[in-house]
Write a protein that binds this DNA or RNA. Structure first.
Length: 110
DNA sequence: AGCTTGACTTTGA
DNA sequence: GTCAAAGCCAAGC
């Protein structure tokens, strides 16, 4: 893990996110050791956009809001994919986010 | 080569 | 309780 760049680490975590589940930038950043590096998670997602193995649509902000949907192609693809996985999205916001939230630190034992 | 911005979060006032 | 600032790493200009 330490040998990988920040992006690689982020991708590794996001890739472990179960289908129909969502996580937050802060949770991933925290799992990497720096809760405040959540911004980089966003950049990582931007780079991960080219990686089909990295479900960036399952990554939302800490409010469960699809803040990065505008970076998708098309932007509505994010919500569409989430709904396709069983995740209800209302007004760009994940419904039952608290239940659907997937914490890498807790699940991965970090 | 250096400064600014960026898909966020936490903490301080 | 709400507003403002700091912090993180990388890419763009």
């Amino acid at each position: 893990m330490r040998d990988l760049n920040f992006f690689e680490q982020v991708w590794a975590v996001v890739r472990e996110v179960p289908r129909g589940r969502v996580t937050s930038y802060g949770a991933i950043a925290k799992a990497l050791g720096s809760p405040q590096s959540s911004r980089m998670v966003g950049w990582a997602m931007n780079a991960a956009h080219a990686c089909p193995d990295v479900p960036a649509h399952r990554v939302v902000n800490r409010e469960g809001l699809l803040t990065g949907k505008v970076h998708f192609t098309p932007p509505s693809a994010m919500q569409q994919r989430l709904e396709a996985e069983g995740v209800k999205v209302k007004k760009d916001k994940v419904v039952n986010f608290d239940e659907l939230f997937w914490d890498p630190v807790k699940e991965l034992g970090m």
